[in-house]
Design a protein around this nucleic acid. Structure first.
Lengths: 228, 228
DNA sequence: AAGTATACATACATTCGCGTATGTATGTTC
DNA sequence: GAACATACATACGCGAATGTATGTATACTT
C-alpha cells in the first residue's frame, strides 16, 4: 500500500509519535531504535524518515505536541483570581502544574522521557534545549510573581524574590522528580493543595500565611491540554 | 608494557574511573564508548575489561566510590545535636545534603551522571538501581525523623509525617535538579541555610518555627567524603 | 486520462561499539 | 631461575542501528 490521503498521512504521523512516546518511556531514548517505533506504529522506518528528518526531529515534535507554555497558563488562571493578587495566582500556578501530572497522561509521559529517559550531552540533546526553554519559561513567570509578592512585603525575611522563586522551582521540580521516578511510592493523583500551602507558608510572613489559609482559592475551570 | 605492580594496577583502576566520570558527564552514559574512556585514561579497552566486567559494572563501581549512605550521615550528625532533637537533626541533614553539592565535586559529578546523563529503562539501568537504593535510604531516614517530629506534635496541620517527608525529599531533589541541570542560574556554593529554614517553616507549627529561628544549630565538624 | 507529486515500503551500504579470544611482557612465588 | 599468575594490549567477529537510495502504488492535479 502507498500514498494514503492527506488525513491518513497526518494520522500516521500521530501514530508514530504515540509509538515513540511509549517506546521511549519504556526503554529510554537512545535505546529505542527507529525500528522498534516503526513496529509499534505498524509502519516501516521509511515512514518515519518520511515524516521526520531523524530521531532528533522526532523527539522535538513529540515534545512540541504537548508543550503548554506557562505564560499561557498564567494568563488563563489570572482571569479567575479575584483582584489578580500574585500570591493567590502563584498558588494556583503551582497547584495546576502539579495536578497536570495526574490529569494529563501525555504531559506526564513526555516529561518522564525528557527528564529521565534521555541523556543530556554537553553539545545539547534536542530534548535538552526544550527542557531548558520550558524551565526558563516557568522561571520567568514564577520569578515575576515572586517579585510582585516581594513588593507587597509579603516575603518572610531574609528571603529575596529570587530565593522564593528558587524555592518554588525546586518544589515543583522535586515533586515532578519524585512522582515520575518513584511512582510506586509517590502518587500523582493525590491532593496537592496542602503541600502547596505548606511550601508557600514557609516563604511568606505569618500574617500573609494566615490570610492565605483563610481564603482557599477559587478553583478555576479545567484547562484543556495544549493541542497545538 | 604489561604486568604493573599491584599498586600501579589499583592506580590504573582509579584512572579509568576518573576518565569514565569525565566522559560520561560530558557525553552521557550510553554515548560514551569504552574506547573513549580508555583513550582518556591512556589505556586500551583491554585494561577496562580486565578491571570491570562491562560498562554496567564500571558505572556501579563509579557510584560506589562516592556513595555515602544517609544513615551514616545521620549517625554522624546526631552526635552534634544537643538533645538529639529530630527537628534540628533534620535541618542539619538537609543542610549538609545540599552543601555537599558545593563541597564534594566527585559527589556532584556522579549525581549529575546518575540523574541526568543516564537513561532509565524499565528493566532497570545499573545506575537506576543505585539511584533507587540511595533514594530509599534517604527516604527512610527522613521519614523516621518526620515521624519523631510528628509525635512531638510539631507538624503544622493537616500535614502528616508522610507529607512532611515527601516535602523534604522533593525539596532536596528539586534543588539537586536545579543546581545540576542549570548551573548557570543556580549555584551550588550559596548559603543554603535560609532556604532550608524556609522549607521547614512551612512544615511545622508557628511555635516550633519560632523556636527553630531562635536557635541556629551548632555547625558540626566537616565530614570527610566516603573514601575507599 | 495522463502526469506528477505523495506516502510510504524495501533494499543496501556503512559505521560503530561490544564482547571475546589471544598474545605478551613483567611481577611473584617456590 | 623456572613456572605461574597478573595486567594489560591487540585482533577479530558480530549484531544492530543509521542513513540513503530506490521501488511502487495511490491520491491529486490539469
Amino acid at each position: 500500500m502507498a500514498r494514503r490521503t492527506k488525513d491518513e498521512s497526518a494520522q500516521t504521523r500521530e501514530t508514530i509519535l504515540d509509538a515513540a512516546e511509549i517506546e521511549m518511556q519504556a526503554r529510554g531514548v537512545s535505546q529505542t531504535s527507529l525500528n522498534r517505533i516503526a513496529q509499534r506504529a505498524q509502519v516501516t522506518r521509511g515512514a518515519i524518515y518520511w515524516h521526520f528528518a531523524d530521531k532528533r526531529a522526532l523527539l522535538e515534535a513529540m515534545v512540541a505536541r504537548t508543550h503548554l507554555p506557562l505564560r499561557d497558563l498564567r494568563e488563563c488562571l489570572s482571569q479567575h483570581i479575584p483582584g489578580n493578587e500574585p500570591l493567590w495566582l502563584l498558588r494556583e500556578v503551582m497547584r495546576h502544574g502539579l495536578e497536570r501530572l495526574g490529569n494529563d497522561p501525555r504531559h506526564r509521559r513526555v516529561c518522564h522521557i525528557v527528564m529521565h529517559r534521555c541523556e543530556v550531552t554537553d553539545e545539547g540533546h534536542p530534548a535538552d534545549a526544550l527542557m531548558r526553554a520550558m524551565f526558563e519559561d516557568a522561571r520567568e513567570v514564577i520569578l515575576s510573581l515572586c517579585s510582585e509578592i516581594d513588593q507587597l512585603d509579603l516575603l518572610h525575611p531574609p528571603l529575596s524574590a529570587r530565593d522564593a522563586s528558587d524555592m518554588v522551582m525546586a518544589f515543583v521540580a522535586g515533586h515532578y522528580e519524585c512522582v515520575l521516578r518513584h511512582p510506586e511510592t509517590h502518587r500523582a493523583d493525590r491532593d496537592w493543595a496542602p503541600l502547596v500551602d505548606a511550601a508557600l507558608r514557609g516563604l511568606i510572613t505569618e500574617a500573609a500565611a494566615r490570610r492565605l489559609a483563610r481564603e482557599p482559592a477559587a478553583k478555576p475551570r479545567e484547562l484543556e491540554p495544549a493541542d497545538h
